[in-house]
Design a protein around this nucleic acid. Structure first.
Length: 311
DNA sequence: CGCATTTGACCTGCGC
DNA sequence: GCGCAGGTCAAATGCG
């Protein structure tokens, strides 16, 4: 089971406070196949994610089971790109990029009280200060990149999505026994980041948040991913896969009335999740999905379903 | 040796 | 202003 959520939706709806407000448990499945779930964000939709639980690694592929069509929140928003307004985002940006020096001053003040420090310690502190000061000034607060947060049921924390990531940090998360890991795309010039953490409510659920958009093609075509499988059932052939095409967290007019092209998942920098594109390409699909209990079985060939859900 | 990961320190934003 | 928590940096370390 997987639920995808973009904070742009939430922000547009004014329901996103902080990322930590993500009510993980709200998204936890399984959802009955014919049930529309509305999250606390007012984000209705049903997604199904067959998982490769045996291998503990990851994901087979993503199913968009349906979106409540009479609710504008998701589908309409997907069709209506919500590019964060820099003006609104940067309104409160301090005009002083000197915060670093200010902070250094306070450090010096603090150091003044520590007259017992040895020469070595002072040198070390000076070196640290110098090192800090050598850092390029922090750029003014940037508008936050569009983000996708989604949950996957997996024993593996870091899912192979075809891109190469470097872990650059890990932090303990308040009210959660599990740390949050921070990854950055290793491709030069690509500033996409992602955070990975386990749900404190269900440790089998991994919450992954992507931020930014890849500026390059996927360097490694995920094995058996949606994009590379010849099976064009629309939801990708699967079977023993351990990776998938990660959604590209971007909202672009690209989707609006775009011409369906089944080549969209060719591991390129396609700006949007495959399954959302699918949704866009077949807008009538989910309507029927939601009105009957066909759902997955209506979408997928029986053979694929069998592979997807070996249980 | 080069690259990835770990981890403690630091920076920053936000709420009180 | 202060403290807290999230996010990032970068040196140290590990690994192939």
């Amino acid at each position: 089971m997987l639920v995808v959520v973009s904070d742009q939706f939430m922000e547009k709806r004014g329901e996103l406070k902080t990322e930590n407000s993500m009510p993980n448990s709200t998204f936890s499945g399984p959802f009955p196949a014919n049930t529309t779930t509305t999250t606390s964000y007012g984000f209705p939709g049903i997604f199904d994610m067959p998982c490769d639980g045996d291998k503990g690694s990851s994901l087979g592929f993503i199913h968009l089971l349906g979106i409540q069509d009479d609710n504008p929140s998701l589908f309409d928003l997907f069709q209506t790109p919500v590019i964060p307004s820099p003006a609104s985002e940067v309104v409160n940006t301090p005009a002083t990029p000197n915060s670093l020096s200010i902070s250094s001053s306070s450090n010096e003040a603090a150091n003044d009280e520590q007259n017992k420090t040895t020469v070595e310690e002072e040198d070390e502190q000076n070196q640290k200060k110098a090192k800090k000061q050598l850092k390029p000034k922090k750029t003014p607060k940037r508008p936050r990149e569009p983000r996708f947060a989604f949950m996957t049921k997996s024993e593996a924390d870091h899912l192979d999505d075809g891109y190469r990531w470097r872990k650059y940090g890990q932090k303990a998360v308040k009210n959660s026994p599990f740390p949050r890991s921070y990854y950055r795309c290793t491709t030069a010039g690509c500033g996409v980041k992602k955070r990975v953490e386990r749900s404190s409510d269900d440790q089998s659920i991994v919450v992954t948040t992507y931020e930014g958009t890849h500026t390059h093609p996927c360097p490694v075509a995920p094995r058996g991913s949606i994009g590379v499988m010849p099976d064009s059932s629309g939801f990708g052939g699967i079977g023993g896969t351990s990776s998938f095409v990660i959604p590209q967290p971007q909202f672009q007019p690209y989707f609006h009335n775009s011409i369906p092209s089944l080549g969209f998942t060719n591991a390129t920098n396609s700006p949007f999740p495959t399954f959302f594109q699918e949704r866009q390409f077949y807008p009538s699909l989910s309507s029927s999905l939601l009105r009957d209990d066909g759902l997955l079985q209506d979408i997928l060939p029986s053979q694929v379903r069998k592979e997807a859900k070996p249980e």
